[in-house]
Amino acid sequence: MRAFFILAMIASFYTVSAPAETVTSSIVVQPKQSKNDASYQYYIDLVRLVLRETQTQYGNAELVEAESSYTQSRAFIALKTNRLDLYWAGTNKQREQEFRAIRMPLMGGLLGVRVPVIRAVKYQMFLQIGTSGQLKVLTACQGDQWPDSDILQENGYRVERVTQFALMYSMLKQGRCDYFPRGITEVYAELEGEDKEDLIAFDKVLLSYPFPMYFFVNKENSALAERLEQGLLSLISQGKLKKFMQQHPVTKNIFPLEKYSNSKMFSLINSSLPESTPIADESLWLQIKTSRD
């Protein structure tokens, strides 16, 4: 009996003293929306990088994909009801009121720089565009629930709202819209996919509005929020996030940013941008300098 007691005490000591690295938790994230969702892997790899960056303090964590895919509105409902632990999306006032936003742009703020994806046969037509007014008479395909659609319409652009991501490229190919504005950080990877041979990224014209992509968590999940904040801050302060972008297959083709210096950039207003957005913190944002309309 004495020997058993000693063994139990030893086991108890090692259980209490075990390093944080042995603790494994699960973080439920969204699955890939479709085969066209090339940027999905970027965010998955970034989350894993953040988790490794904070592993010593918070322990191991693994990502688990939810069983079903969500539209943006349903994904936020899933986040509120704890069917998702983490969701990444462009921010707006309502989202930051209802959820905890990790206010560090995941792509250096470049999500708000949009490249028109067009049919190759329309290349010469788009070459004639010199003002935002000329682009506004054309129709953009855009997500029905994306804040981008509201931003475009607020600034006088015509928008064909589409519910499913995969349908947007299909509608563009069918000529049901003239262009599909995609984030400059995601467009090149998407166009490497199947059935995109007749589409091109017309990066001689860019649309730009302040629209950071953030991680969002349930307001009650403070532990995960703090981990994400600390991990991202560490990556940014060490220059690791920019290096990650320069090397990742999804985003590496946008560099060097100087290659867009001769592009025409049309600036848009985003009135749904929360006042708390850290626009003044230059360490968080990457800049593309072009001629502007």
Rank of each mutant, 00 (worst) to 15 (best):
A18K: 11
S39V: 00
A20V: 04
V16L: 15
L7V: 15
D37C: 09
A20E: 03
K35R: 13
S12M: 14
L7W: 10
K32L: 10
T15F: 12
I27E: 05
A11G: 10
S26T: 14
S26N: 13
Q33Y: 07
N36Q: 07
E21T: 06
I27P: 03
Y14V: 15
F13S: 14
V29E: 06
V23T: 03
T22V: 03
Q30K: 09
D37A: 12
Q30E: 11
K32S: 10
Y14T: 09
S12R: 04
V16Q: 10
S17I: 12
A8G: 13
K35D: 13
V28I: 14
Y14I: 14
F13L: 15
A11I: 14
D37F: 05
I27F: 09
S12G: 12
P19S: 08
A20R: 04
K32W: 10
A20G: 08
L7M: 15
A18T: 05
A20L: 03
V28E: 01
Q33K: 12
S34V: 05
T24Q: 09
S26G: 04
Y14A: 12
S26V: 12
S39L: 01
M9I: 15
S34F: 09
V23W: 00
V16R: 12
F13D: 03
I27C: 08
Q30F: 02
F13R: 11
M9L: 15
S34T: 06
A8M: 13
Q33N: 11
S39W: 01
S25Y: 02
S12I: 11
N36C: 05
S12Y: 06
V16K: 13
E21A: 07
A18W: 05
S17T: 03
E21F: 11
S25P: 00
M9Q: 09
V16C: 13
Y14E: 00
D37Q: 04
L7S: 14
N36Y: 02
S26A: 05
V29G: 01
S25E: 08
S26W: 10
Q30L: 06
V28L: 06
L7D: 02
M9A: 15
D37W: 01
Q30S: 11
M9T: 14
V29L: 09
A38I: 02
V16S: 14
K32N: 01
S17A: 10
A18L: 07
S25L: 06
K35Q: 12
V23H: 05
A38K: 02
V28Q: 02
S12H: 04
I27T: 00
V23C: 06
Y14D: 01
Y14C: 13
E21D: 01
K35H: 03
V16M: 14
Q30T: 07
V16T: 12
V29K: 08
P19K: 12
D37N: 11
T24F: 04
S25V: 03
S12V: 12
A38M: 05
S39F: 00
P19I: 05
T22F: 01
A11T: 12
V23D: 05
A20P: 01
K35N: 12
S12F: 11
I10C: 14
S25K: 06
Y14F: 15
T22H: 00
A11D: 07
T15N: 08
S39G: 04
S25R: 07
